Simulated assay, not measured.
Amino acid sequence: MKFSCEKQKLQEGISISNKAITGKTTMPILEGIYIKAFKNSLTLIGSDMDLSIETSVEADVIEEGTIVVDSKIFSEIIRKLPNSDVYIETLDNDIIQITCEKSIFNLVYMKAEDYPSLPEIKENISVEVPQDILKSMIRGTSFAVAQDETRPILQGILFEIKDKKLNLVALDGYRMAVRSEYLGSDDNIDVVIPGKTLNEVAKILEDAENLVKITFTDNHILFNLDKTKIVSRLLEGKFVNYVSLLPQEHKILVEVNRHDLQNCIERASLMSKDSNSNLIKLDFNEDNVIITSNSQLGKVREELNINLQGEELQIAFNSRYILDVLKNIDENEIYMEMTSSVSPCIIRCKSNDNSRYLVLPVRLMR
């Protein structure tokens, strides 16, 4: 095998395929990047068997071939080379030579035939979504994925197509995030994708209207982004009936500026960081909310103007859960819907209905 490639292009391809390599594997070959030089391009693949990412970059291929190289050392070498063309060729004794200007590295490679093949995806059921919309939907839900391994299904995000809408849903038992966008597809799809997979997908998606083609099988999902393909296994099991968790009515409606509320809670939470609950109290009155936090460190009081419809209410939250929601809402005017100090709070945008966030309160000791 012999080829040359621009350092920047090669580095970008390595960075993308590397996102699937975790290093937590009993198969040493999966700690490597699979490289195939063919015609006028390189195909680079990274995989941990659950998630596989394949991407291609332009190259001047002099002699075709395939190898697997240790991803960690290879990416470090390429990253530190001068910004010039990189020449790579295989030598005897399973060695590749990497040359860039006056730098020469000799690196051991592994046999490509030992690399496991990617799952075969027959592209029969598929939908297309603008990349920027999908990226925003993932960002707006992935923070609520459960970290607890006792309920594996909650470590994933529900990817649901229903009534011509795409819904992404994540929950961890304390909060829930629901994002919806009109898709216009007549398909009915209900799969659960590992949260870590979608986080890696979001890093690769562009902030552009280019379409990503998403294909489903019984066990896998494929994201096709022109030069990059991402294949992930799906989680087994049935996701929680999230619709039944959303309150159908409320007694208290608060209109508040998201940015101002976020700043107040961030300051108030400074006093709650020595406790596991990150407890803050919100006292909603007719035209303001008073936010307080007491701890061994001291106490804090914040006051913010609001528009309240309904009764006055005192309620407490884990500040981290509220802040996670506020940081992932794009719009500044929001509604908070509540019924009592022990029932869920729904946070949503004032101007559109494409997101719903549920946060459970912390029960106050009387």
Rank of each mutant, 00 (worst) to 15 (best):
M1C: 08
L10C: 09
E12P: 06
S17F: 09
T22F: 06
M27H: 06
Y34P: 08
I35A: 01
S41Q: 15
I45A: 08
G46V: 11
S47N: 07
L51P: 05
E54F: 06
E58G: 15
V61M: 05
E64P: 13
I67C: 09
V69K: 00
V69N: 06
D70K: 07
I73H: 11
S75Y: 08
I77C: 07
R79C: 05
L81M: 08
L81E: 07
P82M: 03
V86Y: 11
I88C: 07
T90Q: 13
T90Y: 01
D94M: 12
Q97C: 13
T99K: 14
T99F: 00
C100K: 04
I104S: 11
Y109T: 12
Y115P: 11
S117G: 05
I121G: 08
I121R: 02
I121P: 05
I125D: 14
Q131I: 04
K135S: 10
R139E: 14
S142Y: 08
A144W: 03
V145P: 02
E149Q: 01
R151F: 00
P152R: 01
I153Q: 01
Q155D: 00
Q155C: 05
E160K: 15
L166C: 03
L166A: 00
V169T: 12
V169K: 02
L171W: 02
Y174V: 02
Y174N: 04
R175L: 01
A177S: 15
S180L: 04
G184T: 09
D187C: 10
N188F: 13
I193N: 02
L198F: 05
A202L: 00
A202M: 12
E206V: 02
A208F: 02
N210E: 14
N210A: 12
L211N: 12
K213S: 14
K213Y: 03
I214K: 00
D218E: 14
D226G: 01
K227Q: 13
R233A: 05
L235P: 10
G237T: 09
V240H: 02
N241C: 05
Y242N: 03
V243Q: 13
S244M: 11
L245M: 15
L246T: 09
Q248D: 12
V254M: 01
E255Q: 15
N257Y: 09
Q262W: 02
M271S: 10
S272W: 03
S277M: 11
K281F: 01
L282G: 02
N288M: 11
T292C: 08
G298M: 03
V300S: 15
R301I: 15
N305C: 04
N305Q: 13
Q314L: 10
I315P: 09
A316S: 15
S319L: 07
Y321F: 15
I322R: 00
V325P: 03
E331I: 09
E333F: 05
M336E: 03
E337Y: 15
S341H: 09
S343Q: 12
I346A: 03
C349M: 11
L358K: 01
V362T: 13
R363F: 10
M365N: 14
